[in-house]
Design a protein around this nucleic acid. Sequence first.
DNA 1: TCAGGTGGTTAGGTTAGACTAACTCCCGCC
DNA 2: GGCGGGAGTTAGTCTAACCTAACCACCTGA
Lengths: 227, 227
Amino acid sequence: MNALLHEPPLTRSVEDYLKVIYHLSSQGGFAATSEIAGSLDVAPPSVSGMVKRLSEAGLIEHVPYRGVQLTTQGRRAALKMIRRHRVLEVYLTQQLGYDWDDVHDEAERLEHAVSDQLIERMAGALGDPRYDPHGAPIPTAAGEIEEADLTALADAPVGAELELRQVGTEDPARLRYLAEQGLLPGVALTITERQPFNGPTTVRLAAGVRIVGQELAQLLWCRARTP
Amino acid sequence: MNALLHEPPLTRSVEDYLKVIYHLSSQGGFAATSEIAGSLDVAPPSVSGMVKRLSEAGLIEHVPYRGVQLTTQGRRAALKMIRRHRVLEVYLTQQLGYDWDDVHDEAERLEHAVSDQLIERMAGALGDPRYDPHGAPIPTAAGEIEEADLTALADAPVGAELELRQVGTEDPARLRYLAEQGLLPGVALTITERQPFNGPTTVRLAAGVRIVGQELAQLLWCRARTP
DNA sequence: TCAGGTGGTTAGGTTAGACTAACTCCCGCC
DNA sequence: GGCGGGAGTTAGTCTAACCTAACCACCTGA
């Protein structure tokens, strides 16, 4: 009774659903129908239909009117897609001249077409990178992912000495702006000031002082700096 | 009335049909329904259905009960796919350790997912190669393809001094065997003997003498050697 | 406590692409 | 010159996705 035998290959669509369900339910809990619909830009009834198919296939657990969670099998499939996506992003930026703000769409299409073999060769050629260009951890081929304990810049206290680890957006305009400001994964920063009422955070980098609005400060994931 | 405006992107399936129609009708003339069905491993009525859609889209010309030919627009699209496929094959073999016998399937899937930009970057990284690993010419980005005048080894006379230019199969087992025999694009050879009744052809290479059966000899495309 | 409203689901329809079964065209052979 | 067989097409069905319209469940606030 091993469901792994004769496993039919997943469709593009299924792969996309699993990925967004992973992201939406990663902070524990359920992914809501409307959230999934929003992320994939489809109508809610389309999600209901797919949810039915996915839970029949044993990839998700569906609690009607509550939402959806990945099963072990679904999680494995989702992590595989995330590995593909992130390895592709690193490869395209390091080997083919892509920038961190334009690599997402290309990887998004390629991730459904590459073989495991190709991904492992790309990863090998890159020296098995652990993070993608935005600082997100790359799951291992075995399906393990680093769970880092990061704090949004917006939530860290004035005076904190931090390292920027990860940037939580794929929006090209925001990414370009952040790169201009030198706000890239790995950079060291110190919070010198914050205006009240969701005001901007002022940080000091080696390269100078930056004033970061609330919206962007919530996308900049940091950890305490160990000097 | 420019049909190029608002052109919907082609589906994977359409891209595959255009490619096989290109190959089947490249020696002038029409591609037959059953040939297309055979190449794509679908049933003939599926081809009839697709043919209707493609000719409505202006990509092919259909003469009922005779067959199908590409229009200028369809030819352009087919050559674009062939460029993608062949550039991918070169990239995967030169940069990622693929062999000429296992690169076809990977390229076949990727060709539908890559952007024009990525293909041009790969081509650039490779120095704009003109031939794929099997010696097939790569169409230019502008859609032009070299029309070489090649002769199958099986059809060349005894005594001919030839250069092997292109290998007309993607079958891994045959390709592996040919590589073992040193029968690779670019190699110089002289026909020393041929047995009658579709018998084997004996050739002399720098590396030694080879006896090539009729089936393989029809896959080895050669041109006269200019010493 | 029950009345809305929001969000989720069901019902029913569309499209691309495939299939099988059944029919028709064409050509070669007698 | 007609007939038979193979190739091509038409008709009808299926599935995966999507959609809109309509219906229902749950929770919150009066």
